[in-house]
């Protein structure tokens, strides 16, 4: 191709076109999702600053505010872990970490997705390439998982630095649990976002009536069972509560509540897998109509 000085691209070769297609299709069939992830990360550069601020700035603000203020005020142990009494900061830290992963999905699995279908229409461009719709959604999710892992790892380093983790060794699994919580919340949201053809402010509603209540009613700032039973169901349905409870178990060395860790984990997995299946279906339906 480089031999053409005119700048006109090379014409087709004489090779058998069917054979050429079969060869050229093999690599994208395997790695299509990776190319989508590459593109997604490149797009994230446009708001890299927001990502860093959310990853480091926001935890710092919470930890300083809660650590220096609220935790100093609540100067008694709030729970009993296997390793002894638990301070308020140690109680809140796993919840903050998990909510950071869930918060990421409020952007990546909402407006970004709607834009990919509707405003910037990126997905339609990908769709015309060898990449399959399932790979498009796979690549997007993979890219976001990496972002959630990096963010929660940074969060973890910070909470350890603030002395907010009872056992930093088992607690080191918290980023994985937080990310799973992010997926349990985010993948159903992704499926919903992919189904939206008209922007009627649905995501602002999700923010107001799903995300914010979850944050407040998921045993984030006080144990869930302090609330009346008729409000506790919000926590039971909340990926944030389940991820937080697992995170607390990892930090304290024993489950903080009556529910075994395995149950929390199973609920998160079911939510994530259901969301994943639905999201794949929506992408295929939308892009292959």
């Amino acid at each position: 191709m480089s031999t053409h000085t005119s700048g006109t691209p090379a014409g087709p070769t004489t090779e058998d076109p069917t054979a050429r297609a079969m060869t050229a299709g093999a690599l994208p069939r395997r790695l299509g999702w990776w190319y989508v992830a590459e593109h997604t990360w490149r797009a994230m550069r446009a708001y890299a600053w927001t990502i860093v601020m959310e990853g480091i700035g926001q935890p710092l603000v919470y930890l300083l505010g809660i650590g220096l203020g609220l935790a100093a005020f609540i100067d008694v142990s709030v729970a009993d872990g296997a390793n002894g009494p638990v301070t308020y900061l140690e109680f809140v830290a796993p919840a903050l970490l998990a909510s950071s992963a869930i918060g990421i999905t409020m952007g990546e699995f909402t407006y970004v997705v709607m834009s990919g279908f509707k405003w910037r229409r990126l997905y339609w461009g990908m769709n015309a390439s060898p990449v399959q719709p399932q790979q498009i959604v796979g690549g997007i999710v993979f890219a976001v998982v990496v972002r959630m892992l990096l963010t929660t790892i940074a969060y973890y380093v910070l909470i350890v630095a603030f002395g907010a983790v009872v056992d930093p060794w088992t607690g080191a699994l918290m980023p994985l649990v937080g990310t799973l919580g992010g997926l349990a919340f985010g993948l159903p949201l992704l499926a919903y976002a992919a189904s939206i053809t008209e922007d009627k402010g649905q995501f602002a509603m999700v923010q107001r009536f799903v995300f914010t209540p979850l944050f407040l009613f998921s045993g984030t700032f006080y144990p869930l069972d302090t609330m009346p039973v008729w409000l506790q169901w919000i926590g039971w349905l909340s990926p944030l509560w389940h991820a937080t409870e697992i995170g607390r178990s990892l930090s304290y060395g024993s489950p903080p509540g009556a529910w075994p860790v395995g149950v929390h984990l199973a609920i998160l997995l079911v939510m994530a897998v259901t969301g994943w299946v639905l999201a794949r279906r929506m992408f295929v339906k939308r892009l292959r109509g």
Binding site: P17, T18, R20, A21, M22, A24, G25, P28, R29, G32, H39, A43, A46, R120, R121, L122, W124, G125, A128, S129, P130, V131, Q132
Partner: peptide
């Protein structure tokens, strides 16, 4: 290209250049 699009979508699309009716370049 001798292939059935239902079975060989990726293979066919690997050999196509598509200029859609509505541009979908990445403005970012």
């Amino acid at each position: 290209l001798g292939l059935d699009p239902d079975a060989h979508g990726p293979e066919i699309r690997s050999q196509l250049g598509v200029v859609p009716q509505e541009d979908n370049l990445d403005p970012e």
